[in-house]
């Protein structure tokens, strides 16, 4: 990300407290213009609160939120140049699809003809041309999701907020929509702020990801940064699968008790006795289980009482012979694949 990019949304030490829980705890971050920014975290981590703070449904208890440099404190949602795609879509059941999409324009007194035209374009963009006269109740889940998207995009907001918009869809549709959403975002160039608890979704679509936990941001970075260099044990565990090594084993391997993480697919297994390459770190372990997963095989190897997950691509058509169970192997990985955790 170049430093010259203009900032769409900026959080300045924002806190929001509900009773005893800090839903947002001293948050400070920026979202750039035209960026696809994801807020990733388990439920209750504060990501949806952040979204509602930007939309204006919640007000910060401490700190400020700036949209395009302007403090939006006290600005009601209907005066913010921000639109939301709700988790359950919140389509107006008494209006047609076209009525839903035109709603924001109608409120802003856009002349009827232009309204029609723009709503038509928006529906075309989400591939729902000709569905304008239907009622939301006559649509499938995926179609409703598209209507919600069109209804927000038609207003050309400065920022589009998406609250787990694919959560209610089945897996196949969700994957297709991920691709579509991303290309749509490129096409319209609007800043997307996307809330999800699904790490695959966040990794596949985002320019940058903020990982939330307990109302705080654990790490912000590009998908590759987050995945390859998780800053904390939480990020390492939440984004993808990771082996977190700490304590005595870490001490033995690295001469430092600082914890580190290592991804299962970065680990190699060698026959015992193979010399450990210079740029690698190796230790003996026993194969405890091997699970054939089609494209790859997942091994669990016990190293000094600790279970380490290892994933190997099934390059050749070998399957998993039972004979390897209990076998002692050399577990080794590249030094550069290790990630020190704070």
């Amino acid at each position: 990300m170049s430093e010259t990019r203009s900032i769409a949304v900026k959080f300045e030490n924002v806190s929001r407290v509900f009773g005893a829980t800090r839903a947002a705890d001293n948050l400070a971050f920026e979202v750039y213009d035209g960026e696809f920014f994801s807020m990733l975290g388990p439920s209750g981590s504060g990501k949806t609160t952040c979204l509602r703070l930007i939309a204006g449904f919640e007000q910060p208890d401490i700190g400020h939120i700036l949209v395009h440099g302007k403090n939006v404190e006290g600005v009601p949602p209907y005066e913010r140049d921000v639109n939301t795609v709700f988790q359950d879509y919140a389509l107006f059941p008494h209006m047609t699809v076209a009525g839903n999409v035109e709603y924001g324009l109608m409120i802003r007194k856009v002349p009827q003809q232009e309204r029609r035209r723009r709503a038509g374009e928006a529906l075309e963009m989400v591939k729902l041309s000709g569905m304008g006269e239907r009622k939301p109740s006559q649509l499938s889940g995926g179609q409703r999701q598209r209507v919600a998207l069109a209804r927000a995009l038609v207003n050309r907001p400065a920022v589009l907020l998406l609250d787990e918009p694919l959560g209610a869809l089945d897996l196949k549709l969700r994957e297709a929509m991920q691709v579509e959403l991303k290309s749509l975002q490129r096409q319209v160039g609007i800043t997307f702020i996307y809330v999800t608890h699904d790490q695959t979704e966040a990794l596949s679509m985002s320019d940058r990801i903020a990982v939330f936990n307990h109302g705080r941001i654990e790490q912000i970075g590009t998908p590759a940064e987050i995945y390859e260099h998780p800053a904390t044990a939480f990020v390492a565990g939440f984004v993808g699968v990771s082996n977190v090594v700490s304590g005595a084993l870490a001490q033995r391997l690295t001469s430092s008790s600082q914890a580190f993480s290592i991804r299962p697919e970065k680990i190699s297994l060698f026959d015992l006795g193979t010399p450990v390459p210079a740029d690698m770190l190796g230790i003996e372990g026993q194969i405890e289980s091997a699970t054939y997963l089609g494209a790859n095989t997942r091994f669990v190897v016990t190293v000094e009482g600790k279970q380490i997950a290892v994933i190997k691509q099934n390059a050749s058509n070998v399957g998993t012979p039972d004979t390897i169970l209990g076998k002692s192997v050399l577990v080794a990985w590249n030094l550069t694949s290790m990630q020190k955790l704070s």
Partner: peptide, 12 residues
């Protein structure tokens, strides 16, 4: 959230 959706779309 219909009310929130409406306010989000600019309606007071």
């Amino acid at each position: 959230n219909l009310i929130e959706a409406s306010m989000d779309l600019g309606a007071n």
